[in-house]
Design a protein around this nucleic acid. Structure first.
Length: 319
DNA sequence: CGGAGTAAAAGGCACTT
DNA sequence: AAGTGACTTTTACTCCG
């Protein structure tokens, strides 16, 4: 009996590894790595945090180009960033049938007609034209902002949804495209401020903000405010503070969140305050000004956050 | 200079008309 | 879609060691 249980536990240990990682759902650091299934899963609530599905390539083998062409069945991947998802077809100009025989004049006329209408039919209707324009706009802006393809896909997806729900009527296509892109950035955890997006857009900040709020509300996309912890790494490296201090700053943020003194406050401010305290405690003193500068908040905010956290978390700052 | 503090202006958000 | 009100952040300034 005992023996069996021991065996069980060691077996478990072999395929699971505890990670110092927090679950986004239940916010407990109980995420474990499951090697068998190649995923990261939360031990507490069962949420799959990360799936790493390995692409092992095709199940067939090809020894030369000809075989490859014969055996492969896929085309290019479907994408959200082209108005028809890159799935459009075209009729070639060879004027031959499937067997390679020449077409009769009669058939040829028919094929000409087909080609003509096939082409015209591709970008048709206001919806498609709308999409075609906006998606190229999103494309332009994201390359201007240096955003990944991934963010672009998310933005395109959001925009598509907005079109389908008829949310564009009465709003500028540029405005909604910008808003979709901004939303995609937040969703992908690649923080770009409203200003940065506005800069590469033809629309001003207020307009984008308005559209952003509107579409997120209507589409029921609710994007949680950025976790202050996300800023610690970036600010930390800009301030050149040690890893220990960063870990400490994260701990402070977590505690502050438990005390519920972070909601409604700007995440950058909270991060800045926590970093300031952590640096102070570890004797890596940074001035409030320096911290404020990298976090893009004022010294006053750093002071307010830091004094509130120090008070509520019983952290003595005099050492 | 770095830090502490304050009042007033500005800004963002939820909620109503 | 503009107005309201509670709340946070910013601006600008003073005081202290």
């Amino acid at each position: 009996m005992n023996n069996m249980m021991e065996k069980e536990s060691t077996k478990k240990k072999d395929s699971h590894e505890e990670l110092e990682k927090e679950c986004p759902s239940c916010e407990k650091s109980s995420v474990v790595r499951d090697y068998k299934r190649d995923i990261e899963i939360c031990d507490n609530c069962g949420r799959i945090v990360k799936e790493a599905i390995k692409d092992r390539g095709p199940e067939w083998r090809a020894f030369d180009q000809k075989q490859r062409e014969e055996k492969s069945r896929g085309g290019p991947p479907s994408t959200e960033t082209i108005h028809d998802k890159g799935l459009s077809t075209q009729i070639d100009y060879k004027n031959r049938d499937a067997k390679g025989n020449k077409l009769s004049p009669e058939k040829r006329r028919k094929v000409y007609r087909l080609r003509k209408w096939h082409k015209r039919g591709r970008v048709t209707g206001s919806k498609d034209r709308n999409l075609a324009f906006s998606l190229s706009e999103i494309n332009r802006m994201s390359s201007h902002l240096g955003l990944s393809k991934n963010v672009q896909e998310i933005a395109a997806k959001i925009y598509r949804k907005a079109v389908n729900e008829d949310l564009i009527r009465g709003r500028s296509m540029e405005g909604v495209s910008s808003a979709a892109l901004y939303a995609a950035c937040r969703e992908a955890n690649i923080p770009r401020t409203l200003e940065e997006v506005a800069e590469s857009s033809r629309v001003d900040k207020g307009e984008i903000g308005k559209n952003y709020r509107f579409i997120t509300r209507e589409l029921d996309i609710h994007i949680p405010p950025t976790d202050p912890v996300r800023y610690v790494a970036r600010f930390g490296s800009e301030l050149e503070i040690s890893g220990e201090t960063r870990v400490k700053a994260i701990e402070i943020i977590r505690k502050a969140q438990e005390e519920k003194i972070t909601s409604g406050k700007s995440p950058t401010g909270t991060a800045a305050g926590a970093i300031y305290i952590a640096a102070l405690e570890n004797g890596e003193r940074k001035t409030q000004r320096d911290v404020a500068e990298v976090a893009d908040v004022t010294e006053v905010t750093v002071r307010n956050r830091y004094s509130e956290m120090a008070e509520k978390l019983n952290i003595s700052t005099n050492t």
